Simulated assay, not measured.
Amino acid sequence: MSTVHIVKEIYIYPIKSLAGISCKSALAEEMGFENDRRWMLIDAENQMLTQREHRIMSQFYPNISDGKISITFQDQEHEFFIDEHLENSIKVNVWDDKSEVVEVNHETSKWFSQHLGFECKLVKILKNGARKHESSRLKETFNVSLADGYPYLLIGSKSLDFLNDKLNEKITIKRFRPNIVVSTENAHEEDNFKTFTIGEVQFKNIKPCGRCIMVNNDPENGRLKKEPLKTLSTYRNFDNSVLFGTNIVSLNSGNITVGDALVF
């Protein structure tokens, strides 16, 4: 058993591109952690909405309690039931993947529309298999939620330390929206993880994660900055992709907890 690689932080992001929730433990499922990116905002043309175009989305803060999700934006709050949804299905795309979703309710969509300043809907993916993502690297297809590509993103602590040593203005791990943060000895050693177990769950590493302009959006205030992508591109650019963290999938369901060791 490794005494080096310990789970330091766990995060879920119930609604795609909104703020995340720090968790002490989480239930890992094939599609990702329970309640992680099962919801997404879409515009009037049923196109997904993200912080890439709407940085203000980082200022909506979710919380889960008593079977409900509450969203806080500035001094306003709205809540809906986790299991709540309308019946009519909607066809959407998450990048190149087709997915079937349903609207949560009209009131919730109206609340988001008012605060974002344009018509939108909050939708939910209901079942495993409603969206499939093909790995071009592995020639394998995965059942995923509404995340960009893969169910889980893992980052090693030394990767952030190494980057911060190069930055004038230090940043937190929240810039990279990980699901699992683990303690490591060397920067980016997580790129080379293969198969490993955390708690009750076996995970498989798929590939390092290519990063986009979204990591330059400061989640504390929603402002776009030049870093960290500018600095990362000087030493983490591989085949025109800037890599940070690694995409993983779970091979079974079960719980993982902060403090669990990675067993290789």
Rank of each mutant, 00 (worst) to 15 (best):
S65V: 13
Y61E: 11
V144I: 13
N221H: 10
K158A: 15
A19G: 10
G222E: 04
S89M: 08
L160H: 09
Y150N: 03
I56C: 14
L262R: 02
R236H: 10
N205L: 08
N247D: 14
N93E: 09
K91H: 05
S241A: 12
I248C: 10
F33R: 01
P208R: 07
R211F: 07
T231N: 09
R131V: 03
F112H: 01
S159C: 11
L232N: 06
L18Q: 04
V94A: 03
R175Q: 15
K16S: 07
L18R: 01
N247Y: 13
L18G: 02
L49W: 05
I180D: 01
R236Y: 06
Q74L: 12
F142K: 01
V182K: 00
E9I: 04
F118K: 13
K158P: 11
N63T: 10
Y235F: 12
N93S: 10
N93C: 08
V181M: 12
A19T: 12
C120H: 06
F33D: 02
L243R: 09
H54C: 12
K121A: 10
K124F: 00
G32L: 01
H5Q: 12
N46R: 12
G67E: 10
G117Y: 09
K139E: 12
G20S: 06
V182F: 01
R131F: 02
T246I: 06
L229H: 04
F80P: 00
Y150E: 03
V94R: 00
T72W: 03
D36W: 00
C23V: 08
Q47T: 14
E107C: 04
N205Y: 04
V144W: 00
S99H: 02
K166V: 06
F73V: 10
T141R: 01
H115M: 13
F203S: 00
L18A: 03
N255R: 04
E84A: 12
Y235M: 07
L229T: 07
Y13K: 02
M214L: 13
N216M: 03
I69Y: 07
F33L: 07
S58H: 08
I12C: 04
M31I: 12
I21S: 06
N221M: 10
N217Y: 03
R52L: 13
E79Y: 05
I180E: 02
L232Y: 05
M1T: 08
A44Q: 15
F142P: 00
S70I: 09
D83K: 15
L138Q: 14
T172N: 13
V4K: 11
N240G: 07
E185T: 14
K174M: 14
V102I: 09
E87A: 14
V249D: 00
L229G: 10
V94Q: 02
N93M: 09
E84S: 09
R55V: 11
F33H: 02
I56R: 13
G129P: 00
N46P: 01
D36N: 08
P219Y: 00
I15K: 04
E9H: 07
E227A: 13
F176D: 02
N35C: 07
Q74K: 15
P14V: 06
Q51M: 11
I15L: 06
E103C: 07
Q114V: 11
S183G: 08
T197E: 14
L41F: 03
F196G: 14
Q74W: 03
N35V: 05
N128S: 14
F118Q: 14
S157V: 08
N186R: 13
I69S: 05
Q202F: 08
H85N: 15
I82N: 13
S250R: 01
